[in-house]
C-alpha cells in the first residue's frame, strides 16, 4: 500500500531534520511507541503497541535511518513483528523550507501481513493516516514548546 503526504513543522529545516532523527523525540511522538533503543548507527530497536479495530498487539522491530542527506532528505525503514502479524514500511522523507517552517513530504510503501492483513486490511489505510497525523501533531507540539523555552 502506498502512503504519501506532507506535514508542516513550525521550525527551521535543520532543526526539523534533527528532531525527526532524535530517538527520544521519536519515541515520544510515535503513537503506541513504548521504547526506542539504539542498536547501532542509525538503527534502533522499537517496541510499539498497535491498535487496529478490535485487535491490539505489541510489535517488536527495527527502525533504520538510511541514506541521510542533511538537511534535505532521508529514508526511514521500519520492520515490526507481533502476535497479530507483521508490518514493514519503507519511506522517503523530503524536507523543504516554507513560510513559517519546514514542509516534510513523505512517500512510501507499507506492507502488513498475518492476522492484521486478513482482518484489518480495510482499516490499515485510515489507521496509517491517523498515526502519521498524530505523530506530526505531537512532533509539532514538542518542537514548538522547545522553541518557546529556548
Amino acid at each position: 500500500m502506498k502512503i504519501a503526504g506532507y506535514y508542516t513543522l513550525p521550525v527551521a529545516r535543520e532543526r526539523a531534520y534533527d528532531a525527526l532523527q532524535d530517538p527520544v523525540l521519536l519515541a515520544q511522538c510515535m503513537p503506541g511507541c513504548e521504547s526506542l533503543e539504539p542498536l547501532g548507527e542509525d538503527t534502533y530497536r522499537m517496541r510499539m503497541k498497535m491498535i487496529l479495530a478490535s485487535m491490539n498487539g505489541l510489535f517488536e522491530g527495527k527502525v533504520k535511518i538510511a541514506e541521510p542527506s542533511k538537511p534535505e532528505e532521508f529514508r526511514l525503514v521500519v520492520e515490526g513483528n507481533g502476535k497479530i502479524g507483521f508490518m514493514k514500511g519503507d519511506g522517503l522523507l523530503r524536507l523543504s523550507e516554507t513560510d513559517g517552517g519546514t514542509d516534510v513530504h513523505f512517500e512510501g510503501d507499507v506492507t502488513i501481513g498475518g492476522t492484521i492483513a486478513a482482518v484489518g486490511n480495510r482499516l490499515v489505510d485510515t489507521t496509517a493516516k491517523m498515526m502519521i497525523r498524530k505523530f506530526f501533531e505531537r512532533m509539532t507540539e514538542k518542537v514548538r514548546s522547545e522553541a518557546a523555552t529556548a
Binding site: T115, A118, N121
Partner: peptide
C-alpha cells in the same frame, strides 16, 4: 489476495 500474497478476505467479516 493482495500483491504481497496476503488474503485480505481472511474472515467471514470480509
Amino acid at each position: 489476495y493482495d500483491e504481497s500474497g496476503q488474503l485480505v478476505t481472511g474472515e467471514l467479516t470480509d
